[in-house]
């Protein structure tokens, strides 16, 4: 599941796809249908401002605030909005909780539906054919490739995101974190744990 990056043609003329994109943008700008500056801002938002740190703060709060956790599991969209994370592709959210008996993982089998307000845009492997088919056909094997080795008794639940509902995994809080505050806990939570292809590791050192 590695992400291959292709070299860009810095000196060569524009590739076919670059030409098509440029032509389309020129057409839309000429017709006044898109504003290049607004496009720049949108790209900047998803490159630099919205990402998995938002989701990590939601998770850390759920770990430390039982009432919040309950609201999050009952109505994720509102509970996430409460934290200030709303907008595109976060309109209908569901949070699924990992326990010692159930491990949840998220996929979008048909395309790439993903909760942008809390995780940003998806990583390449999430959009790749291999993950999208194998997460359903052999989830345990996929989890092992990601380094997650579950006890055979643990049930794996795979959630298929759509344009109508998007899932966020609430990972298990690791042991030895009782003395950490919300911000410190959020630091421990990485993107993959909220997709359900990683677990949150026990911190190597106690509260810094």
């Amino acid at each position: 599941m590695s992400d291959h990056q292709h070299p860009h043609h810095h000196t060569a003329p524009l590739s076919e796809i670059e030409q098509r994109v440029k032509q389309l943008e020129t057409l839309l700008v000429d017709k006044g249908l898109v504003d290049p500056k607004a496009m720049d801002e949108l790209v900047d938002t998803y490159e630099h401002r919205v990402g998995p740190r938002n989701g990590a703060r939601v998770v850390a709060r759920a770990w430390t605030d039982p009432e919040y956790k309950q609201r999050l599991l009952e109505d994720a969209t509102s509970a996430i909005m409460e934290m200030g994370y709303a907008g595109r592709q976060g309109e209908h959210m569901q949070v699924v909780e990992n326990t010692d008996k159930v491990h949840n993982m998220v996929v979008c089998t048909l395309c790439s539906c993903y909760p942008w307000p809390v995780l940003g845009l998806p990583p390449t492997w999430y959009k790749a054919s291999s993950y999208r088919s194998r997460a359903v056909s052999e989830p345990r094997a996929v989890l092992e490739e990601f380094g997650v080795n579950l006890d055979p008794d643990v049930e794996v639940r795979v959630w298929d995101s759509t344009s109508e509902i998007r899932y966020l995994v609430l990972p298990r809080r690791p042991n030895n974190t009782e003395h950490l505050n919300q911000d410190q806990l959020a630091e421990l939570v990485e993107r993959d744990a909220m997709i359900g292809v990683a677990v949150v590791p026990v911190p190597t050192e106690a509260a810094a």
């Binding site: 992400d3 990056q5 292709h6 860009h8 670059e18 790209v43 938002t45 998803y46 490159e47 630099h48 401002r49 919205v50 990402g51 998995p52 740190r53 938002n54 934290m83 200030g84 994370y85 709303a86 907008g87 595109r88 307000p117 940003g120 845009l121 990583p123 390449t124 990485e190 993107r191």
Partner: peptide, 20 residues
């Protein structure tokens, strides 16, 4: 999107959000 509540956060793992 409530932009002021969002901090700067590059994609994790060093993978760029867009390749090109």
């Amino acid at each position: 999107m409530i932009v002021e509540l969002l901090s700067t956060q590059p994609q994790e793992g060093g993978e760029p959000v867009f390749d090109a």
